Each structure stands twice: as C-alpha cells, then as structure tokens.
Computed example of a mutant assay.
Amino acid sequence: MASVNKVILVGHLGKDPEVRYLDGNVTVCSFSLATSENYNKDGARVQHTEWHNIVMWRTLAEMAVKYLKKGKLIYIEGHLRTRNFEDRDGNRRFVTEIVGESFKLLGRPSDFNPPAKEPTETQNTDEADKNQDVDFLENNDDNDGLPF
C-alpha cells in the first residue's frame, strides 16, 4: 500500500523569505508561517498559534522571494521532512519542516502589488477587492517558472 505525506496550510508569513544559493547556483528560501485556531476554554475564547518552518527550492523559491512578504496570507501545499544535524556543541538536533511544492497568494491584489494609480470614479470598487488568483507551482523543467 502506498503512503501519503501531504501538508496543506493557510496562514500568515512570520518573516520575509530568506534566500540562499547552494552549489550549482541552486536557490533555496525559508520562512516561518503562522496558523491559528480559536476555541473556548472555561468560557473564555482562546487563540492558539502554531509556527511552521517552510522551505522552498529552485524556481519556486525565487517566486516566493519575489512575491511573499511578512504578514501576507498564503495557501501552501507541500510535504513534511525531518532532518537531523549536529550543532556546535556536538549535540544531535532534529528539525521538522514543510517542503513547499506550491503556494497561492490570498487576499486582494493590492496586498501583493504596489498600487498602480488611484481609482477613478468610473472604476468599479468591487473589482479592486477581488481575490488574487495566481498559483505558484514547483517547476522541475527548464522553463522560466512563471505562473502565467
């Protein structure tokens, strides 16, 4: 029987993506993502925030660095990966992170793009509030990796 390792999250970026370049000019970026849940405990409303470590590679990492900023809301799909390393003191450490395979910008287009110009009276203000609909997928081809 096949196994499944799939993660789907909707949350806010805790910081701007940090980019690094590895041997062979391979791009990797990482950032934290916060997801929150609300529940009642003893009659009081409680909010619990979980922080996730996200890693993206190659073209997807380049798109993340270009479009994602601290505080922005995104939808992300990926898989869990746990790795271990030895710290400076010689202790073995384990890190669990989500390897992003795709992400989608959520919110108004103005949340991700600088304003082009002031709306005129003839423009429909509802049009300005439509959700952004741009998907960014992991691209293993030699294409330019643009989402459109």
Results as ranks from 00 to 15, higher is better:
N5H: 02
V7L: 12
G11V: 07
G14Q: 06
K15D: 06
K15H: 10
E18I: 07
Y21N: 10
L22Y: 04
L22N: 12
V26N: 04
V26A: 15
V28G: 11
S30P: 02
S30Q: 12
A34I: 07
E37Y: 00
N38S: 09
N38M: 11
Y39A: 14
N40D: 09
N40R: 01
D42F: 15
D42L: 09
R45H: 10
V46F: 08
H48W: 05
H48G: 13
T49S: 09
T49Q: 07
E50V: 07
W51A: 10
V55D: 06
M56V: 01
W57V: 04
R58P: 04
T59G: 11
A61W: 07
E62I: 03
E62P: 07
V65R: 06
K66E: 09
L68W: 11
K69V: 02
K70Q: 13
K72L: 13
K72P: 04
L73V: 10
L73K: 14
I74Q: 07
G78K: 03
G78A: 00
H79V: 04
L80P: 15
L80Q: 13
R81T: 10
T82H: 00
N84Y: 05
D87E: 06
D87K: 00
R92Y: 10
R92I: 13
T96P: 02
I98T: 12
G100Q: 14
E101A: 14
F103E: 02
K104Q: 12
L106W: 01
G107N: 02
G107V: 02
P109F: 01
P109W: 06
S110E: 08
S110R: 06
N113C: 11
P114Y: 00
K117M: 12
E118P: 00
E118T: 11
E121C: 01
E121V: 09
T122E: 13
Q123L: 14
Q123V: 07
T125P: 13
D126N: 04
E127W: 02
D129M: 11
D129R: 14
K130M: 11
N131V: 02
V134I: 15
V134D: 15
V134E: 09
F136L: 09
L137K: 15
L137N: 13
N140L: 15
F148W: 12
